[in-house]
Design a protein around this nucleic acid. Structure first.
Lengths: 245, 245
DNA sequence: CGGTCCCTTGATATTCATCAATATCAGTGG
DNA sequence: CCACTGATATTGATGAATATCAAGGGACCG
């Protein structure tokens, strides 16, 4: 398979029109494991939105919940304001991952979502998805699996936050990025961080300075090479050991 | 409404046979918001298990996922082993709350569940629930809402763990218990903790000693009265203020 | 009555946050 | 092209919060 030319605008626009069945994210996304006929139905209700520039909102906290979104390219952070005016980053979302799932229960978004870099999305109107999943066997099941995986991932993150040191937290975040990038066939050992140190520190519950120091320590120890937002993992096993147990 | 005689064995046994539509937990549970006809269908697939003694497993990590469980009485903790032989408590579950949702995606339980005190359950075989939710309009939707709420609650907990001090964490846990007890019409200001200090500290990511000290400090400050596992909240507003933002 | 577990309290050590200074880069306008 | 500016990142010094180590009290159970 030839490498996609992600950096040409022409291809980018073509991608916006590509059907689910031809999408490179197919295996990660909602359609995975459903029948071809059901897929065609799903495809019809999906709206490909034009790309969002860095810093633009996909939705805002308190807004009405109408759709869930699949990240198609780029990346997104979700965050919720805390009453003291700060914000808490609740997640980073890469292509193939769903955003907005935590709004289903209340009908209102409990967090905001902004693009960390230019990003595009598939928008799936939720009422139509619900209707469809009552007809299309398998679609409802896949939806449940995706929500369940989200719960499971959150529990993993909780384990991290509860028990571990600053080094373990950052290592675990990097390992998480590694595996999520590799799922998409990209390099997990040499990648670009789309989020600032501030976002990382906020997400991990650390001070910015601590994140910076831990990066430096990792580099001194030969675990990785870091230059601003460009990260190269040199010793995967040892990094995982730091992130574990 | 007279107080239920929870401590007599006869009533306890009767409760095991009560139908969903007569269950006191009705509003919190899966049946909430679905039609009477669908409810009757759901009722048929639910298995009322006999009570589990304190310390007994409901399911164990790595075991095959077959059912989700609703806590009917008593309480449960879920926890996952970490490779170093420790365990991380991932949740406490009170009556009306569902357990096992994080296993749907993989088909294997990523955590164990044990009774913190004698506890009873409704067991819902998941394959039957999936089949049923394709027929019964509304059931699938309620299931999605419940999973979404779980995701949202986990995000709230993450906010807590990321940002806040030991005092804020413990206060938030107590406030959470308050509201969950009051949802069931029980007193949220005078209750019994079914879990040990060790479990609490593990859940909150603190040392046992720190939890103990914070309880003492709260008592000195007049926020609450604590005697071993018996807690009386004296100043709800101030406790919430410590927990928030 | 003795043992064990659970909880509490005190003393010390460690980690991480905070404050402060400096460095680097991206963008802007001269 | 260069200087200026603001955002972002790194590094050092200090202090506060919490973990760890250690000891003892009290409840429950045989």
């Amino acid at each position: 398979m030839p490498a996609p030319h992600n950096n040409t605008a022409v291809i980018e626009l073509n991608q916006l029109r590509v059907a689910c069945k031809d999408c490179s994210l197919f295996q990660l996304c909602l359609p995975h494991g459903i029948s071809e006929a059901d897929l065609a139905l799903l495809d019809k209700i999906i709206d490909r939105r034009r790309p969002l520039a860095r810093g633009k909102h996909l939705f805002e906290v308190g807004g009405p919940f109408r759709s869930i979104y699949v990240v198609r390219s780029g990346s997104v952070k979700t965050f919720a304001p805390t009453p003291d005016g700060e914000e808490q980053v609740t997640g980073f979302h890469l292509p193939g991952e769903l955003v907005g799932l935590d709004a289903i229960s209340t009908g209102t978004h409990p967090c905001s979502a902004v693009a960390l870099e230019t990003a595009s999305f598939c928008e799936i109107p939720f009422d139509q998805l619900e209707d469809l999943s009552e007809e299309a066997r398998g679609l409802g099941r896949q939806l449940l699996r995706i929500l369940s995986r989200e719960i499971h991932d959150d529990h993993e993150l909780l384990k991290l936050m509860g028990k571990h040191s600053a080094e373990a937290r950052l290592a675990a975040l990097l390992v998480s990025f590694m595996s999520r990038l590799e799922r998409r066939g990209l390099s997990g050992r040499d990648f670009h961080l789309s989020m600032s140190r501030h976002d990382i520190s906020n997400y991990l519950g650390l001070a910015v300075e601590t994140v910076s120091r831990v990066f430096s320590r990792f580099q001194q120890d030969g675990l990785l090479t870091v230059d601003r937002r460009h990260v190269i993992i040199n010793d995967v096993e040892r990094l995982k050991a730091v992130a574990g147990p």
